[in-house]
Each structure stands twice: as C-alpha cells, then as structure tokens.
Nucleic acid binder design. Sequence first.
DNA 1: GTCTATAGACGGATAGAC
DNA 2: GTCTATCCGTCTATAGAC
Lengths: 203, 203
Amino acid sequence: MSDTTSPRERIVEAADRLFAEHGFAATSIADVAAAAGLLKGNVAYYFKTKQDVFDAVVLARQQRLSRELTEGLAPDADAKTAIARLLAQVRSEADRLARFGCPIGSLSTELGKTGDSLQSPAARPLLELEDYLRSQFGRVMTASAARECAEHLLALLQGAGVVAHARRDPAVVRRQVDAASVWLDNVLAQAAQLQGHPSRSAV
Amino acid sequence: MSDTTSPRERIVEAADRLFAEHGFAATSIADVAAAAGLLKGNVAYYFKTKQDVFDAVVLARQQRLSRELTEGLAPDADAKTAIARLLAQVRSEADRLARFGCPIGSLSTELGKTGDSLQSPAARPLLELEDYLRSQFGRVMTASAARECAEHLLALLQGAGVVAHARRDPAVVRRQVDAASVWLDNVLAQAAQLQGHPSRSAV
DNA sequence: GTCTATAGACGGATAGAC
DNA sequence: GTCTATCCGTCTATAGAC
C-alpha cells in the first residue's frame, strides 16, 4: 500500500476512508496505521492525538469539497449549471452512498452528539456545502429565498443518503437526485419569472 | 431515579435515551445502569450482552413508533390526515431533533457501518416508517407512485434532522416540515386528479 | 432452603497516549 | 514498545420473600 505520497498524507487518506466506511469511534489509530502501511507508533509521530488526525481529515475533506465544487466548471457558468453539476456528482456516487452513507453527513451525525471539540469540526463540511448552495441560489433570487432553497436541497440530499444507506439501495440516491433536478428547474424558472415581477416569495 | 416501573423497563428506557443522546458506541453498560439507578452487574442480570440491550431498545422503539402513528387517529381517517399528523408530530419535536438528531436515523447511520447483527435491526424502525408512509400514499395512488412519495418524504424528513442537528437549529425542521406540507398537498391533489384520468405518472 | 434481585469484583482485551 | 484506562462479559456474594 506504499505510494509515492508522504506518510502524513497517507495517514490522512487512510483515516478519511476508514472514518467514512466504519465511523470515527469504530476506527482505531492502529487501524489507520495499518491501512496506511505503518505502525501505530509512527502515526503518533505525525499526530499526537486521535483528534489531531480527525482535524486533519476534516481539513482535507473541506479542501477536496471546495476543489470538487469548482474544478471543471467554467468560471462564467451560471447557477443552474453549477448546482446541476453537483447533483450529477452526487448521483455518480450512489453506490458508495448506499454502502457507507454520506461521509460528510454521517460524520456530522455521529460526532454531533459528543463534545464541542469534535462536533463543531465534524459539521463544518456540511455547512460549507450549504454555504456554496446558498451562494449559487443567491445569484438568481433573494438572499432569503436562496437560504431556503439551499437548506431544502441539502436536506433532501442528506436524507437520500440516510435512506439509501439504511436500505443499501443506490437507486434511492438516483431517484431523489432526479426529483431534486425537477424541483431545481421549477425553482429557477420561478425565480426567473419573479425577477421581472419582484412581488411574491417562493418556497 | 427509582420509579414504579420494573427494573428491566427502566434499563430499556435509559438505554433508549442514552443511545439517542450520545450514540450507541459512546454509551457503556455502566452508563445505562447509572441512568437506570442500578449497577452494571444488575444490568447483566436482565441482559447478557450489550446487543441484547440494543435489541430491546429497537423493539421498544418500533412499538412506540407504531403506537404514535396510530393513537388518537380516527380509524376512518384519510391518508392526508394521517400523513399530516405525522408531519405535525415531527414538527413538535424540532427542539429535540436539533439537539440530538433523529434517534431513528442517527442510530441507523451509526450502526449501518458495522456488522449485520447491529446494522439490520438499527435500520428497522426507519424502514417501518417508510412502510407506513407507503401504505398511506397507496390508498390514493398507484403502488409505484406511493413508493416514490414515501421515499421522498422520508428522505426529506431525515435530511431535515441531519441539517438541523448539524446547525443546532430547530427552525430547519419546522421549515422543511412546512415545505413537505406544501409538497404533500400538491402530490395528493395531483393524485386525486389522476384518479379521474388514469393516464400519466407523477414524480 | 430456594428463588429472585441487587451489588460488587475480576479477567481478558483493546484503545489511546506518551 | 509500554503504560494506563476503560469496557465488556462473567463470576461471586449479599439480602429479602415465600
């Protein structure tokens, strides 16, 4: 399992995968070390505590999320294109979501019940995703409407992950993403209409 | 903490609450015993293993869920009334959902990554809820459409729990339940229309 | 004396931290 | 590589009811 990447990087990658597949509590430092092709003492050289590993994983996920949200997207792409691309990305990961649930959502759920030192970082990628959605919706509707749309879409996608995971059925993700696409079209069409007639609000 | 209820019942109640508030892995038998006003040795008298406690908790949750879904509901209530009542119940628990997440969903998420002996029971209440929704929708639309509606509504509610928990914001639950109410009205109106013209399918 | 319920202690195993 | 802490599961001891 030894790559050309640095040991520290391999530790973070291994922990990232194990946290997603088995959860945080069920993953020991020894597991991480073994998956990274190291001994546990070596992990301690790079990370003093398990929380330090956790923090590094959260940081890596945030960076990857930011990258995935922007890479391959034309700088002048409109909101609909950007959001539709995100939906397509989620759809393409249906199998993994059905097997392990959403890495971001399940980590937030698991660690949201613990102390503040874990709960807050665990929720960060989720909130960052919501911020991204809000900023995209905000380009074509009021800030208030964008906030509601972002929250609704995020909730639907997270729920799709939960249900797909519970049923071990990737089709759940695909169906809910498709439903979200229909909803997206309606919401954006409504927003475009309201920009000519800025009178009512939409849910 | 000694009530008039039986010790076994107190153990299950305490475990139910602790699993919901702190998760399964983070709850020790000693914690359960203390919350029930007993010592761990006594818990072992009623439940050989932690899994036995877990199974009893899952059973209790299923029974309570069944009871909550039916009690106070007129036997001849229509599908819309039944589903709207469920939505109202979820809405009334917004505060608890924001603090600890959905007990059913978070347990399924946490234990879905473990061995089959835990993962399958953990998901059961969630699937039972989906079955209930499907049966209610099935009274006013085709079985296929009811399956999609049940899945969609369950996903939205579960996602609302995840997001509300991540943000510690009960308003998320209330907003998504309200959005679900609007969606419910539309879907049921569409279904009523299609019963006269049984031609197209709805998403 | 027997049965039930409670209480406490021990052993094996494992994880995290140094 | 070691050390300590914790947890699960088991075993033994105590107390009261019939």
